[in-house]
Design a protein around this nucleic acid. Structure first.
Lengths: 195, 195
DNA sequence: ACGTTAATTGACCCGTCAATCAACAAAAAA
DNA sequence: TTTTTTGTTGATTGACGGGTCAATTAACGT
């Protein structure tokens, strides 16, 4: 029963289903049919809208990156002062939306994609650049010329803490993640961190 | 022309070929035939020795982990004093052997495996535990009760820096990696880090 | 010599999957 | 009403990949 104006709805459904399936299986070893079935349509329609599996993967990646970007911008908008800006980035990175098992699994596989799909590599590169840039801006007034170095370290730390959650069974540990990163931040700011 | 005592040689060749192929394609999307061809034998023989693809992946993972473990032990053996111990772990983690593109790609995919293969998850867990434990022992005399927390952070940072190399085109940046981690260590030790 | 065992492979089976296509349904336009 | 555009799918195809097996070759022990 074809309704009109289905394209955006179907595309959105497919993108969500793609993320969900990648998260569920923990790998890129998902079939177009699985994704399409979860999104409530035939695999042929998925091909129709995205031209192929790769297109679906990239769309899913763009979507996750867009959500993350929005979350960061939102957090930065209400941050008062440089230190609050850095903390805002950290909190956004580990926000409930980005810290679901599905999404973590998806991220991991984006890195895998980046090894073979140039467009995926480009997208990840944009993410990393933005992350470092955001951190630098907050850090400059705090640590001056060391801002670039510290931003580099914090960015890597965020990714590392994120990666670590892959192995955690059950709910991922948001509070612990934030604490770890902020602990390093505190040390870099020259004050001793709390236990 | 069957020679005797081929088993260990063939197994070793297959393990190396597995790592090489995973590194080359950047994904687990490698066929048994590809691996076997690179190792100079038929795919049937690969199945004969490892029982299947999964067995080959796990063997490759064990091998990488073993090499890494040996490297760490070696570095620790000659380390004088607590701080040197921590630095030894860092240097070993980013040693030339572990920092080749192939191996980095392999590591990334081990995390992917861990999401579906319990044995892979177990192996990675052992690695992470050992890494944290080694760091803690070196850190205890330096930061006392904060050793556990700092070890956690350094371990995550090491993994994050490692992950980051996935996107670097060309040779991975060993010196920069070490510097980033040691910079954070210096900050945690309460001295200001160098630029 | 001779049977036993390790090494080794080509051919094959069975399943799967991405992609295509022809065809149909419904709404919009003419 | 006819035509066009958009939405939709079942069926099909062509390729490929993991795993199995029967059969072959050579070394070894006796």
């Amino acid at each position: 029963m074809p309704k009109l104006g289905m394209e955006p709805i179907r595309k959105a459904a497919l993108v969500n289903a793609t993320i969900a399936e990648i998260g569920r299986t923990g790998s890129l070893d998902v079939t177009v049919s699985q994704i399409a079935r979860r999104a409530g349509m035939s695999s042929a329609l998925a091909h129709h809208y995205f031209g192929g599996k790769e297109g679906m993967f990239l769309a899913a990646m763009r979507h996750v990156l867009t959500l993350y970007g929005a979350e960061v911008r939102g957090a930065l908008a209400v941050a008062r002062g440089p230190e609050a800006r850095v903390q805002a980035v950290v909190h956004a990175s580990f926000s409930p939306a980005n810290f679901r098992r599905e999404v973590i699994g998806a991220w991991l596989n984006f890195y895998v994609m980046a090894q073979t799909m140039p467009e995926a590599a480009r997208l990840l590169d944009v993410y990393q650049r933005r992350l470092r840039s955001n951190l630098r801006h907050g850090l400059r007034p705090l640590v001056g010329p060391r801002a670039a170095t510290v931003a580099e370290a914090l960015a890597a730390l965020i990714d590392g803490v994120y990666l670590r959650q892959v192995l955690v069974r059950g709910k991922a540990d948001r509070a612990g993640a934030v604490e770890t990163v902020l602990g390093v931040l505190a040390a870099e700011l020259g004050r001793g961190a709390r236990t």
